[in-house]
């Protein structure tokens, strides 16, 4: 009889032990959570397992994912539809190191989500909707990417943005670039102004608009 009790306890232990990954991440329902709270408090084996799983969770979640190649293909796809995008890049940008290029590609793909969408076939979408995505003045999508010099102060960055009436949309990216939105009609002038500022390394258009 005593043997049977041990088996039952062992079965319960095994069943609860299987739930430990979700006990660690807090994804059990209240009943399961309460059962495990009680069990773990009195089970040294499960306590050790919880310690292990907490470390495992932290390390697995911390593993960075390398999607640069995927992003670069996205960029190529955008350029296939938007040749003006690449042609607009100034010579000083092309001389930069490869890592900067990858970062910009990722940033552009991020900022120009509207372009990404417009490059997809959207059966059933009204023609007006297709055009509205990239051109709507109320869109929050960025249309300029800038990289500031590393020693630029927050006040200088603010001054640059105000000089062209830009809003910060995103960033910093992996390449320390920022995505801005400026009035579409004034973007050419804004790019000229930004490029002339000493605290800005690079300023680029990032949607399907015309070259500056």
């Amino acid at each position: 009889m005593g043997d049977g009790v041990i088996h039952i306890r062992n079965d319960e232990h095994q069943a609860l032990r299987e739930l430990l990954p979700w006990f660690v991440t807090g994804q059990l329902d209240a009943v399961e959570q309460a059962s495990l709270d009680v069990h773990v408090a009195g089970c040294a084996e499960c306590q050790a397992e919880v310690r292990f799983q907490r470390r495992l969770e932290a390390e697995v979640a911390r593993l960075p994912v390398d999607v640069e190649e995927g992003w670069s293909r996205m960029r190529l796809r955008l350029e296939a539809d938007q040749p003006a995008l690449e042609a607009a890049r100034p010579a000083r940008a092309s001389a930069r190191s490869a890592w900067l290029g990858w970062g910009i590609a990722a940033t552009m793909a991020l900022a120009a989500g509207a372009v990404a969408l417009s490059s997809m076939r959207l059966p059933g979408a009204p023609a007006a909707g297709y055009h509205a995505l990239g051109a709507a003045p109320v869109s929050e999508a960025g249309n300029v990417v800038v990289i500031f010099r590393p020693d630029t102060t927050e006040a200088q960055m603010r001054a640059s943005l105000r000089a062209v009436g830009a809003q910060l949309v995103g960033g910093p990216t992996a390449a320390d670039a920022y995505v801005l939105r400026v009035a579409p009609a004034g973007r050419t002038q804004a790019l000229t102004t930004l490029r002339a500022r000493s605290d800005i390394v690079l300023a680029q258009p990032v949607d399907s608009g015309a070259a500056p």
């Binding site: 994912v65 390398d66 999607v67 640069e68 190649e69 995927g70 293909r73 989500g113 509207a114 990404a116 969408l117 959207l122 059933g124 979408a125 009204p126 909707g129 297709y130 509205a132 995505l133 709507a136 869109s139 999508a141």
Partner: peptide
């Protein structure tokens, strides 16, 4: 057929799905 809503959803899910898909596919391309 609200394309702007789709754009919002796309932006929300792009990073999450990228991580999930690279984990399964193991082939960035």
């Amino acid at each position: 057929r609200d394309l702007r809503a789709f754009e919002q959803l796309y932006r929300i899910y792009h990073p999450r799905l990228s991580r999930f898909l690279i984990n399964i596919l193991r082939r960035p391309h």
